[in-house]
Design a protein around this nucleic acid. Structure first.
Lengths: 151, 151
DNA sequence: TTTGTGAGTTTAGTTTATAAACTCACTCAT
DNA sequence: ATGAGTGAGTTTATAAACTAAACTCACAAA
């Protein structure tokens, strides 16, 4: 499995990673959720090389997660904002943050929290099942391959 | 921000990515959730170089997401199984798969599904708020930095 | 004795990422 | 209109990461 073929995988996780699975893309998207829009802002905040930032932004635009919007003409300057497809990653972000706060040991506590506006509380996210509404725990999940099921 | 400093970030997402944010680690973990345990199995399934696989497995063991268990002696051979910390990534996996199935266009449909054993239905996962139990949508989430709130 | 298994290592070569300086097309203050 | 500033993007030399393929080591089984 080469990285260039990963988008053809029949596993949805592999597909997702073909877009957001490299070292910087997810952090760029996090910054987008945080409200950053401009090249210089990403570069200053993340400290990645400009070359890579340029590549990753172009990639995210091609993949349809970010949209370029001109905020000035002469010269044309674009900012990068999340599309609906990009915003759909919100759940992944929340769960990843939830996990990350707990998973890294030997460091001071993290300082970023999320507040759920509808109830006013600090957001502690969990994954639930659309069909039954129950909290999903790992032991209750079984992966299935369609082909096997249909044969 | 260097990758080596990312685990010190005060953002929980950055912390998470310091462990699972590179090109292969997440795919290795996906295979673990799928039930793979052995070096050769990962290598055959993912097709990554053995050198990198070795590095990533060692990294995951050091980070406490995988546990090495000897499955034979003479010579000692280990398999790699998810720890509680590793299994805690299940929610991220599910949400990422959910997103990935929809996000990549121009390819045949993905063939991997998850079934929720407790209700028997195909699992369509969503993120909910522990405090109010409601489904969380992006516009209702606000990031906060603790320092700012406390000042 | 030979063949096989399985995790891991080595090596040489390719690909990808980095840092820092530079370009280009402007704006704005003097 | 001159000179400093802004902001996205490019170039280039260098460094780090990754790959493929062959090899090692310790055994088991035929």
């Amino acid at each position: 499995m080469r990285w260039s073929e990963l988008n053809q995988a029949d596993c949805p996780i592999a597909r997702a990673l073909s877009i957001v699975g490299d070292r910087w893309t997810f952090l760029i998207l996090r910054d987008c959720f945080f409200g950053l829009k401009r090249f210089e802002a990403f570069q200053a905040n993340l400290g990645l090389s400009r070359t890579i930032l340029r590549d990753r932004l172009a990639h995210l635009v091609r993949a349809g997660l970010l949209v370029q919007r001109p905020y000035q003409i002469k010269p044309v300057r674009y900012d990068y904002v999340l599309s609906a497809k990009g915003r759909a990653l919100n759940g992944v972000m929340l769960m990843l943050g939830q996990w990350g706060a707990a998973a890294v040991e030997g460091q001071p506590e993290t300082q970023v929290r999320h507040r759920h506006q509808t109830c006013g509380e600090i957001l502690v996210p969990y994954v639930a099942c659309t069909a039954c509404g129950e909290k999903v725990v790992e032991k209750d999940v079984r992966a299935e391959r369609r082909a096997k099921v249909l044969t």
